[in-house]
């Protein structure tokens, strides 16, 4: 059985205006169905405004879809019993793009990472501190960073703290919404490596939402392409992305930046040595 199943989800946003007789609803997701198996990663590609983040929110239980169902281990996350929903909230974690706005600026790193542990685990103070230090080390930070506040970290370091917080409860699925997009290349690769390791160690599943084709390709097992609220392509194997003839996918492939100056695509820059 799949870990997560999204069944025919349709969602639209209503803009509330003073004059109500006009229909101002804007469809953002149309009939989306997908599933994520345990221990796999689904990459979700799309340009800005395609509805990627909305789909992420729907899956996280933050945005109730107007039609369709989201099943986590067979339970509908919007209608299940309270206890099951509590369990689901533990098993379903998220890392957002903007690391600064996902943390409370008045909390120290120790407090940020410790908060979910406080809520779900019954640990003594010393145990919790040890767990937090382990988590910090796991994501490439150290004990020295325990007492620091968010503004004392760089964006990359803070994103590691967000990841540490997300993995602190050993969840089953993490929604990564543009989680590596604001990082530099070295950090990006390191975080992707870290995510890959965690995936193997804990049997984690990811929903990797991004516009970065290279990042999605390097981590995903399956790959979907979202365009204007529709899931236009869903590949069982990520390599199919490169053989697809869909015009949107073709355009996406065309805008991948060259890996080497030999392959550059800007017409006036070619043959310049």
């Amino acid at each position: 059985m799949s870990l997560l199943q999204v069944k025919a989800v349709t969602h639209s946003y209503n803009s509330h205006t003073f004059f109500k007789w006009k229909d101002h609803s804007k469809k953002v997701l149309t009939d989306i169905s997908l599933s994520i198996d345990e221990g796999t990663c689904l990459g979700l590609l799309g340009t800005s405004g395609a509805g990627k983040s909305t789909l992420g929110k729907v899956i996280l239980g933050l945005e109730r879809p107007q039609q369709g169902q989201v099943l986590f281990q067979g339970h509908d996350i919007y209608t299940a019993d309270k206890l099951i929903r509590q369990k689901i909230r533990r098993d379903l974690q998220v890392v957002f793009q903007d690391s600064y706005s996902s943390v409370n600026p008045r909390m120290t790193a120790e407090h940020i990472i410790g908060e979910p542990l406080e809520n779900y685990e019954k640990l003594t103070v010393a145990e919790q501190k040890r767990t937090v230090i382990e988590l910090l080390e796991r994501v490439g930070l150290s004990e020295k960073d325990l007492k620091k506040y968010p503004h004392q970290f760089s964006g990359g370091q803070l994103q590691r703290i967000n990841i540490a917080r997300a993995i602190s409860l050993k969840p089953l699925l993490i929604v990564l919404d543009e989680s590596v997009s604001s990082l530099d290349m070295v950090n990006q690769t390191l975080i992707l490596e870290l995510l890959n390791e965690l995936k193997k160690d804990f049997g984690l599943s990811y929903l990797f939402i991004t516009h970065d084709i290279k990042a999605a390709y390097s981590i995903s097992d399956t790959l979907g392409v979202l365009e204007k609220g529709e899931l236009i392509e869903l590949y069982d194997s990520k390599t199919q992305f490169f053989s697809s003839e869909h015009p949107v996918v073709k355009q996406m492939r065309g805008s991948i930046l060259a890996e080497h100056p030999r392959f550059r695509s800007l017409p006036t820059r070619i043959n310049k040595t």
Binding site: M185, T189, K214, T239, R253, I256, A258, E259
Partner: peptide, 12 residues
Amino acid sequence: ARLILNHEEPIT
């Protein structure tokens, strides 16, 4: 640290 797309033909 570059992410390389491992497939047959160069993307460009």
